[in-house]
Lab assay of single mutants.
Amino acid sequence: TYYTVKSGDTLNKIAAQYGVSVANLRSWSGISGDLIFVGQKLIVKKG
């Protein structure tokens, strides 16, 4: 599943919304830090 980052989103908010960890969200999407951008597509795998 892809999630497109919206204004005001954080990795914590997105992870909580999908019931996954921030570490997994980073790993799946190839992100090393906490910086995400509006319009960026993140990969989300539901448990």
Rank of each mutant, 00 (worst) to 15 (best):
S29W: 05
L35S: 14
T1L: 13
V22I: 11
V38I: 11
G33D: 11
V22F: 03
L35T: 14
G19V: 05
L11N: 00
G30Y: 06
G47T: 13
G8P: 02
K45S: 13
L11A: 02
I14M: 01
D9F: 01
Q40K: 03
K6D: 04
W28E: 05
K46Y: 14
Q40C: 06
K13H: 10
N24W: 08
F37Q: 10
I43Q: 10
K13A: 13
K13R: 10
A15Y: 02
L11Y: 04
L35E: 15
I14W: 02
K45D: 11
Y18E: 06
S29L: 04
A15K: 01
L25R: 00
S7F: 13
K46P: 15
V5S: 02
V5R: 00
Y18P: 00
S7Q: 15
Y3D: 02
G47I: 13
V20P: 00
K46S: 13
G8M: 04
A15Q: 01
N24E: 15
K41Y: 07
L42Y: 02
T4N: 06
N12P: 14
T10K: 03
S7T: 13
L11D: 00
L11V: 07
R26N: 05
I14F: 01
N24M: 12
L25A: 00
A15V: 02
Y2S: 09
Q17S: 11
A15I: 02
L35V: 14
F37P: 04
K13D: 11
A23T: 10
G39S: 04
Y2T: 12
K41N: 09
D9S: 01
Y2D: 07
G39T: 04
A16K: 12
A15D: 00
V38S: 07
K41I: 15
S27N: 13
F37V: 11
I31Q: 03
G19K: 10
S29C: 07
S7I: 14
K13L: 11
Q40F: 06
I14K: 00
S32Y: 10
T10Y: 03
T4I: 15
W28P: 01
K46R: 11
I31V: 10
Q40L: 07
L35D: 15
A16V: 11
I36D: 01
I36V: 09
A23R: 08
S32G: 09
V44D: 03
A23S: 11
K6C: 06
Y3W: 03
D34L: 07
K13W: 10
A15P: 00
K41L: 15
I43R: 09
D34G: 08
V5T: 03
K45M: 14
Y3E: 02
S32L: 11
V38P: 13
Q17A: 13
R26H: 06
V22D: 04
N24I: 11
V44Y: 04
G39L: 03
D9V: 01
G33H: 09
A23Y: 08
Q17L: 14
S21H: 05
N12H: 14
I31W: 07
D9H: 02
I31D: 02
V22P: 08
A23P: 09
L11W: 07
Y3R: 01
G39N: 06
A16P: 01
Y3P: 01
A23H: 11
I36N: 00
G39W: 05
D34K: 06
G8N: 07
A23C: 12
T10L: 04
L35Y: 14
V20W: 03
K13V: 08
T4A: 07
Y18D: 00
N12V: 15
D9T: 01
G8V: 02
I14S: 00
S21C: 08
T1G: 10
K45N: 12
S7M: 14
V38G: 04
T10G: 02
I43L: 15
G30N: 12
V20S: 03
L35G: 11
K46C: 15
G47K: 10
T1P: 10
V20R: 00
V22Q: 05
L42C: 02
V5I: 06
S32W: 09
K46G: 14
V38C: 07
G19T: 05
L42E: 00
G8Y: 05
V20T: 10
I36E: 01
S29R: 01
F37Y: 14
I14R: 00
L11F: 05
Q40A: 05
W28S: 05
I43V: 13
V44F: 06
R26M: 14
L25M: 06
G30V: 05
K41C: 11
S32N: 12
S32I: 14
K41Q: 14
G33L: 08
K46A: 14
A16Y: 10
R26P: 02
T4F: 12
I43C: 13
G19E: 09
A15E: 01
G33A: 08
Y3S: 00
L42G: 00
V5W: 05
T1D: 12
G30M: 08
I14D: 00
L35R: 12
N24A: 12
L11E: 01
K46H: 13
G33V: 07
K41G: 06
V38F: 05
I43K: 09
T1A: 11
S21K: 06
D9G: 02
K6F: 04
V5Q: 00
T10Q: 05
G47F: 13
L11T: 02
A15N: 00
V38E: 11
Q40D: 08
V22A: 08
V22Y: 02
D9I: 02
L25G: 01
K46I: 15
F37D: 07
T1R: 12
T10W: 03
K6E: 09
G47L: 13
K45Y: 15
Q17W: 12
D9E: 04
L42Q: 01
Q17G: 07
K41H: 10
V44C: 04
Y2K: 07
V5N: 00
A15H: 01
K45R: 13
S29G: 07
K41F: 08
I36L: 12
Y18I: 09
T4P: 02
V22R: 04
G19Y: 06
W28D: 06
G30A: 09
S7V: 15
A15S: 08
K13T: 15
S27R: 12
G8S: 05
G19C: 09
N24Q: 15
V44P: 02
L11K: 00
A15R: 00
V44E: 01
S29P: 02
L35A: 14
F37N: 08
F37S: 09
N12L: 14
I36T: 03
I36S: 01
V5D: 01
S21A: 07
L42T: 02
V20N: 02
G30P: 04
K13C: 09
V20Y: 03
L25K: 00
V20L: 08
D9K: 00
G39Q: 03
S21R: 04
Y2H: 10
Y18H: 12
V20M: 08
T4C: 10
F37T: 10
G30C: 11
K6Q: 13
L25C: 04
